[in-house]
């Protein structure tokens, strides 16, 4: 049995699909060098069987757009004084900027610096997005 203390202030990202926890941290750009993080992998879950959970102390400013891309089934709990003050159910964003990059070598974003990488959701089920510039279709998480 693993016991991890509750946090007094920060966020708890729960119900992350098992195995996707590292990707969530990577997308959020959160480093253990600057934050206190509890990372639980493969925990048992009544809902999903197995899940990952991330607790980050003293951090409430998170780009939920990016998070929705990695696992839109995850939930984010905001904690203040040990109490959940806000709970957010994520969804796939309709538009994302500078989160994913176009893989088409012919796309202008591959050569022109300073161009925002913009994608629009085309299919929620397959998590596919279309590049604003070249129309190439990419899967949000592979």
């Amino acid at each position: 049995m693993v016991v991890i203390d509750s946090i007094s202030k920060g966020i708890v990202i729960d119900h992350i699909k098992a195995g996707y926890g590292m990707k969530v941290l990577e997308y959020l750009g959160i480093s253990a060098n600057y934050n206190t993080i509890a990372f639980i992998m493969n925990a048992s879950s009544q809902k999903h069987g197995r899940k990952d959970v991330i607790k980050i102390e003293n951090l409430t400013d998170v780009d939920l757009t990016a998070l929705g891309l990695v696992d839109h089934n995850a939930t984010v709990n905001f904690i203040e004084d040990h109490v959940v003050v806000k709970k957010i159910k994520l969804r796939l964003p309709d538009k994302v900027t500078n989160v994913i990059r176009c893989k088409n070598p012919r796309c202008v974003t591959s050569s022109e610096g300073g161009v925002p990488h913009i994608f629009h959701l085309v299919d929620e089920r397959s998590k596919e997005y279309r590049c604003e510039y070249c129309d190439d279709i990419v899967r949000a998480v592979e």
Partner: peptide, 29 residues
Amino acid sequence: ESLADTIRTVSCYADLAVIRHPKEGAPKV
């Protein structure tokens, strides 16, 4: 020179610009 700077400069000289570019989406930029 970047495409962005080229077109900013051309905007000072011309009334209308036509662009062909090997990169997809370059005219949008």
